[in-house]
Design a protein around this nucleic acid. Structure first.
Lengths: 341, 341
DNA sequence: CTATGATATGACAACGTTACCATGTTAGCG
DNA sequence: CGCTAACATGGTAACGTTGTCATATCATAG
């Protein structure tokens, strides 16, 4: 049915290996021969069979990115990965894990069978066993955004702690008294790091800090909504809300809206992660992480490891940027309604 | 290096084929033998090699979804596809085409080499040649959201025309006089269908309709922004803006904001496509398309075609739903600030 | 008691490519 | 002029699985 190397070879009057070499530039091939081969390829409409090639060479030239691509932040990271991968001759399989270990494990299994060359993973703390599994099978992987305790691996992440500290310090400097922090699950390192940064800033400002203002939950909109309701219903509600990621921020804004509270007049709001191309984003004071860059670097680490499997694990911590816009209600933004960015 | 069927077979004291059959439930295997095989698999940590399997059986059990996954709408469709695929034993490769034919073509090429079993594509009109290429290679595909003239294929799409008509009729019924329509590129069928629906409604209302109020462009935020600026700067600006998709809507809102115009007090805004979990969404009057359902159905069509390659092309047109919220400024929404949904 | 079909296992070859080894030709160099 | 190295091409086998054909046992039906 399908056209094979043999067919092309026959048509060009050479052997199959020569055709392979011509197409893969893997050895010398005479100029004239090459021309004849290319002609035959075009005439027969030959499409190389990567499956056979992979079997023989035990390289699939495929990488996988496991994350919740529903979140535009990760979609952007994916973009960074993809661009670089394409350039290096790799394809990328994007897998929607929904941050659920069950789906994650299932995908890893599926991809191991497919003999994927390498993984880029946005892990949770529960990913440990899954990553160990990858190690056992000697499949290289790189972590993005989050560290996993007990797993030494290449990793690219933003400086959550410092970012949260900057954000909190800014709030304190411009008059915030009680800052509610709505963060993600304890199983995710960034959730705790952002808490740590928040506490760093309070400590530096000589404030005691009220433990009850810190709510752990999920990195989701419903959690932002629910936590806001809870915080604002208290006898002494916070005057400022710090959402630990973009989805939480959306829930926060929504909840405040239903309460009839204005931002920033009644309550100031800030968040972590940006949501480029979302109206709310141009309004929110936030800490921006270089998403695309993150992807690009993760890919670079993975390629490096593919080339040299036994190199020492490398951890890249990317600087983050505080972007002050209107939602925190501070006076510094007067005159630039759209915020910068 | 890696454990193979042979190794497992040796350990279990049977032949390789028996192991294959035991694992794939593809023929009779004695209960005791199966147990021994499964034990051997576990002890040796055997992971089947799908590459070899694919080569032999000429089925990869892989599907691809080509679209701009950066758009949450498509990410949701992807979810629908994935869920069903997983269930049917297929993996899905998500590919970010950015709606650019160059990337689309490159991916198709890549995936044809990999002998993907089938494609689900969100095409543009320029996709014609690419789809013809798929046909030439007898690789099944299904279109989503958009028809491509001259290409007979399975297709799932929303009823854009009717949706746009409903939306426009609602606006006219509640007092809109001049409705600016900011739509996508002429190369995308939905962009024109939404225009057609808009015109249907005007005609039905006995209104002449002002051609200059219809602006074709891109399905992107910058275009929404730019088009809004242009429309609102005119001597007789529209009193209502109809954004033909979610990204455009975001640009529209942003532009109005920089103009200092309030929604809906100064200008009413409606759009097509929903943005679940976005604050702006709960505020916008919109036409909702069942994204996840769309994906699920597209997958079902593809599976049907895989099972029976020569069946007649099927086109599924999904009903869409008008959801009235606050942004259109009509009185019907009084008392439900959050809108429904 | 034999025919029939369900049960259970195996041998062999093939899928389409590339790794490895081999061979020959030509050009350059001492 | 013989020797090395770059250039050019081919043969054979192997990657790990499964399609196809073959064989054997056993129970049940006629």
């Amino acid at each position: 049915m399908a056209v094979t190397l043999q067919d092309v070879a026959a048509r060009a009057g050479v052997s199959a290996i020569t055709v392979s070499r011509a197409l893969n530039h893997t050895s010398y091939v005479g100029a004239e021969t090459r021309a004849r081969i290319l002609a035959a390829v075009a005439e027969l409409n030959y499409v190389p069979n990567a499956v056979a090639s992979s079997l023989r060479s035990s390289k699939t030239q495929l990488l996988a990115f496991l994350t919740d691509i529903t979140n535009p932040f990760w979609a952007t990271v994916a973009r960074g990965i993809e661009d670089g991968a394409m350039e290096a001759g790799y394809g990328v399989i994007l897998c929607n894990t929904d941050e659920a270990e069950v789906k994650e494990a299932r995908y890893v299994d599926l991809l191991l069978r497919r003999r994927i060359d390498g993984f880029i993973v946005v892990p949770t703390r529960a990913s440990g066993p899954i990553l160990q599994n990858l190690k056992r099978h000697h499949v290289p992987f790189v972590l993005v955004d989050r560290a996993v305790p007990g797993v030494a691996a290449d990793c690219v992440r933003g400086d959550s702690r410092s970012g949260a500290e900057q954000l909190t310090a800014h709030l304190l400097a411009t008059g915030a008294r009680r800052i509610g922090l709505i963060t993600g699950p304890r199983t995710v390192s960034t959730a705790e790091e952002r808490v740590a940064g928040y506490q760093d800033a309070l400590r530096a400002a000589g404030q005691p800090g009220d433990e009850s203002l810190i709510l752990y939950g999920q990195y989701t909109e419903p959690w932002g909504y629910q936590a806001t309701q809870e915080l604002m219903a208290r006898p002494r509600p916070p005057d400022t809300l710090f959402a630990a990621n973009n989805f939480i921020a959306i829930g926060v804004l929504e909840a405040l809206h239903t309460f009839g509270l204005r931002v920033p007049e009644d309550v100031a709001v800030v968040c972590f992660d940006d949501m480029t191309h979302l109206t709310t984003a141009r309004f929110l004071t936030t800490v921006i992480q270089p998403a695309q860059e993150m992807g690009r670097l993760a890919l670079r680490l993975l390629l490096a490891r593919l080339a040299q499997p036994d190199r020492a694990p490398e951890e890249i911590i990317l600087p983050v940027a505080l972007v002050v816009r209107r939602s925190c209600g501070c006076p510094f933004t007067a005159g630039r309604p759209g915020g910068n960015q």
